[in-house]
């Protein structure tokens, strides 16, 4: 396996290359990069890959105002089974 094919988001199997290419093309924020590639949108809620996606976005983006943000997290932060949703 080459470095470009290496997985960054384990849940959605998003590769380093896909993230790099998308970040370079759109020069977008980490949040937009997530929405475009689905990295961080899988089962674990981005807990595993968030820091990596942030770094890739920061490399390409004009994402200067990174120090003060409201982090976008959607509840539930742990997956809930359909069974439990009913209750």
């Amino acid at each position: 396996m080459k470095e470009d094919e290496m997985i960054i988001c384990r849940c959605e199997e998003v590769s380093y290359e896909e993230l790099k290419t998308t970040a370079a093309k759109y020069k977008c924020s980490a949040r937009e990069l997530k929405l475009r590639t689905r990295a961080g949108m899988g089962y674990c809620g981005g807990r595993s890959c968030r820091t990596m996606v942030d770094k890739i976005a920061a490399t390409s983006a004009n994402d200067r105002n990174r120090t003060c943000v409201s982090l976008k997290y959607q509840p539930p932060i742990r997956p809930i089974s359909f069974k439990n949703l009913g209750g």
Partner: peptide
């Protein structure tokens, strides 16, 4: 194939 990754409930692997 996948196995244990974080071992404390964070990664769901």
């Amino acid at each position: 194939p996948r196995g244990i990754y974080c071992n404390i409930g964070h990664c769901y692997e």
